[in-house]
Design a binder for these strands. Structure first.
Length: 290
DNA sequence: CTCACATCCTGGATGC
DNA sequence: TGCATCCAGGATGTGA
């Protein structure tokens, strides 16, 4: 499921096919994803040049020359497949293949974009928890979607002091606090488990009760795990694939997520346990995470 | 306000 | 084998 590193990987894959290029054609195969497409969605995209492809939290943002930004959220099962038109083509760092004849025909291929790269981009989302919309670029940060989103964990503003500030007085378990997009943008279930494991902090510990001495390694672990995952090209756990269509491989690097019953990878004699917190699976080592 | 939980959706895995 | 149930999880809304 796409968390910050996977979304960043998709963004990187989309960039050469979109940035600096004109969107020549858009097709929507249904009226909505998680939310309805905005009025005149196709009309407001076709003929527009994409100035930048950036990311905020788990959203991909394509700024258009019309003053609007195409906002894409992959939800849990959203994928972007990027193909070259005509012949295989090297775009940026990636070699894009020509779309197979079946591309765009799957029943969950909900949106198809064509650009003058030339490229064909297919958005597939079988669970339809993703969304696409258009917002005013100048007021994007005030939009309902972004208004309450916290800081980027890979930005310079994210440090021990920030973490201490947002966790202070919190009675929720640290696991739940780190998942809260209003505090830190982009973490999801997997990377929260991984970061807490690396920092040896129990997911059950109340957020406000963690000493300053332990918050420094936690902040470092969050940054490190996200950077490692981006470097590995994102995870393709279960039903997610990166924009190029090539599978990433970070799931092979998970130290604790999905390892219930298996030995702790930090060298302690403990066994990884799975518990449910706020309705979500948490994997941790009860022996070394305290 | 803060936190826990149900809800949306689908298909793969599991259980009987 | 076939059918029913569970489960995954991001964001949001509801209710305690």
């Amino acid at each position: 499921m796409p968390e910050l590193p996977e979304v960043e990987t998709v963004r990187l894959g989309l960039q050469p096919a979109m940035e600096g290029h004109v969107i020549t054609r858009v097709q929507t195969r249904r009226g909505d994803l998680r939310i309805p497409f905005p009025k005149d969605f196709v009309k407001r995209l076709e003929g527009r040049k994409v100035r930048h492809v950036r990311r905020r939290a788990k959203y991909i943002l394509a700024d258009l020359d019309s003053g609007e930004t195409l906002v894409i959220h992959l939800g849990m099962s959203g994928r972007m497949s990027v193909y070259s038109e005509g012949k295989p083509r090297k775009l940026g760092h990636y070699l894009y293949d020509v779309a197979p004849a079946t591309a765009g025909t799957d029943k969950h291929d909900h949106v198809v974009f064509e650009t003058d790269a030339p490229a064909k981009i297919i958005f597939n989302d079988h669970r339809r928890f993703g969304l696409m919309t258009l917002v005013d670029t100048a007021h994007l940060e005030d939009d309902k979607l972004f208004r309450d989103v916290g800081i980027e964990p890979l930005s310079d503003s994210f440090n021990t002091a920030y973490l201490a500030g947002v966790l202070e007085g919190k009675r929720a378990p640290i696991k739940a606090a780190l998942l809260d997009q209003r505090l830190i943008a982009g973490l999801g279930n997997i990377y929260v488990c991984e970061a807490l494991f690396r920092a040896k902090i129990s997911p059950k510990r109340l957020a406000g009760s963690i000493s300053r001495e332990r918050l420094a390694p936690l902040a470092a672990a969050i940054r490190k795990v996200l950077k490692d995952a981006i470097a590995a090209g994102g995870s393709t756990l279960r039903d997610h694939a990166q924009a190029t269509g090539d599978p990433g491989n970070f799931q092979h690097h998970f130290l604790v997520y999905g390892r219930e019953g298996k030995p702790c990878k930090l060298g302690c004699p403990g066994t990884v346990k799975r518990i449910v917190q706020s309705g979500r699976s948490t994997f941790y080592c009860p022996k070394c995470q305290t």
